[in-house]
Every structure is written in C-alpha cells, then in structure tokens.
Amino acid sequence: MTAKPLSVGPWQQAWRALLRNPSALVALAVLAFMVLASLLAPVYAHHIAKVDPFTSNVAGSILVNGQAVDIMQPNDNPLHLGLSPIGPTGHAAYLLGADSQGRDVAARLLYGGRNSLLISASAAVICLVLAAIAGIAAGFFGGLVDSILSRMMDIMWAVPVYLFAISLSIVTVSQGLHIGPFVIEADNLLIPIVIIALVYVPYAARPIRGRVLALRQAEFVTASRCLGVPQWRIVLYDILPNVMTTLVVMGPLLMALALLAESALSFLSIGVQAPAASWGTIIQDGEGLIYTRPMVAIAPGLAIVIVVLALNILGDGLRDALDVRDAARRSS
C-alpha cells in the first residue's frame, strides 16, 4: 500500500509547532492549573478553609482575626432590615464570601469547577465520538446512509441549540430517565453530559463528513479499495487517522461550547442539580445577590471566561499547528 499522508511525523511536527506558539502554551498552562485546582477542591475545603460547602449554614459564624463573625449579617440599609451573607473576608475561610445559604463561595467554586470541567470535557468527547461515527458513515458510505443522516442533522440543526437542550432537560429534570429497567436519576451528571453532547453533534458532524468526502476521492483510499481491502479496514486505517486531525482541532472548541452550554443550563436550574455545584449554578445563586454581594456571581463567571478563552486559544493553536491546507496554496 502507498505511504499514508499521515504518520508519526506530522503529529510530532504539529506538537513542535504548538510548543513554539506562546499563547497556546499559556492556554495549556492555564487549563492545567484550573484542572488541578478543582481536583484539589476537597483538600481546600477540609484542610484550608475548613468549611462544608454543601450544607446550608445560615446560622453559623466564623472566626475572623480572633473574633466570631456571623455569616449572615444585617444589611447596610439604614434600618438594617434583612440579612446579607458575609462578603469576601480575605482569610482562608470564606475567602470570597458566602452565598445566600451561607456556604463558602470559594470552596463551591472549586467543587463547581470539577463538575463544569467534567461535564464539558465528557460532553465534548461523547459529541466527537457520535459526530465521527455519523460523519464518517455519511461521508464514506454516501447514498442512502448519507441522505438519512444528513436530513436528520438538518432537522436537529433547525432547533436553536439552547432550546433543544432546554426541551431535553425539562423532560428529564423532574423525574429522571427510565429506560426499561435502567433508571437515571434526575441529578445524575450523565443527563447534562448526554444532552449537551447530543445538541452539538450536527455542528461537529458536518465538517467531518466534508473531510471524509474529500478523503474518499484520495488516491490512497482508491488504491486500498482496488486492492480489495475490506471497508472496515479502510475506515479504521485510512480514514480515521486522517480525520483525527479534524477531531483534535475540534476537541477544545467543542469543550468550550459545552462549558458555555452547561453553565447556561445550570443557570436556568436545569443542568447540575442542587446541592451539587457548577459554575453555572453558582452564578444562579449569585443572581439575587448581584447588587449586594457581586463576588458570588463574578468569580464563577470569570472562571468560565478564563477556561473558555484558554480552550479557544488552544483550539486555534492546534488548528494552526495541524493545518496542511495553507501550505499547498501557491500560484502556479
């Protein structure tokens, strides 16, 4: 068989190109830091802040500079009506203040990061797998398979992404999902993961299908066909490695979209369910406090912006590093 256009070489080359790209490196470092920080959430909560970020603590108090301070404090208004949670303390406990239920925002931020990152990464991976299957099937087999899949994608494409996600969430959020003997509880993270993965499949499948269509005409695939190589082998050894670049570039970009979608769903209270946290739910918690304790909503929002930006930059860097299109472009 003829040499395949992709072997180890191009990947190493791409990796080197990525290492030469300072913004992509910064993005990678930021992502690594965020992942590490959220992995260390229990350590932070139990050993540094010494708080329980999952139970309501409206009656509690903490020690600040040796003095006991109530977590819920009288409002600043002239009559001191109502209570507001404590603001950023500048100490290990309640570093960023408390939310309306008196829980430590900083600790919840780290726990929320776990869920947000887990959901968006898993959703991106599942979405890529589904899109790769659909895109390769449509592009490689063409004909009826392509028609059916493409029409299905057209239909899914026509529903606004968030509405689609909302529809799917609303029917699962109250009672969970009952498929035969299997029951998926409403607060299972699988629900938002699968929903987000599903709604982005058409977006990811379309470029993959295009790439496979182009590859199908390529010489080395035609050669394999003429040699009578079985189709599954062609898909596995000729098509898939070449589609891999597209998948790798789409990965971070999809994860960025998924993270935004997850936070939106959670913000609408149909994503991650209480008492679990995600960055979206914390913003939702902070909505009522936005004028008095803005930090509750600002901190998780910033975390989202930073991670999504880093993912987008990484995606751009990967695209530049892996792209072979521009190299071929010369006047004849």
């Binding site: 960025a256 935004l260 936070s263 939106a264 913000f267 979206g280 913003i283 902070g286 909505e287 936005i290 803005p294 909503a297 600002i298 929002g301 989202i304 912006v305 999504v308 930006l309 987008n312």
Partner: peptide, 12 residues
Amino acid sequence: GISIPVFWLGQV
C-alpha cells in the same frame, strides 16, 4: 467576546 457567557456579561 466569544468566551464570555452572555447571561453573566448581562449581570455584570
């Protein structure tokens, strides 16, 4: 701009 959640930007 692409990276900011619109609802959060609205709140801020």
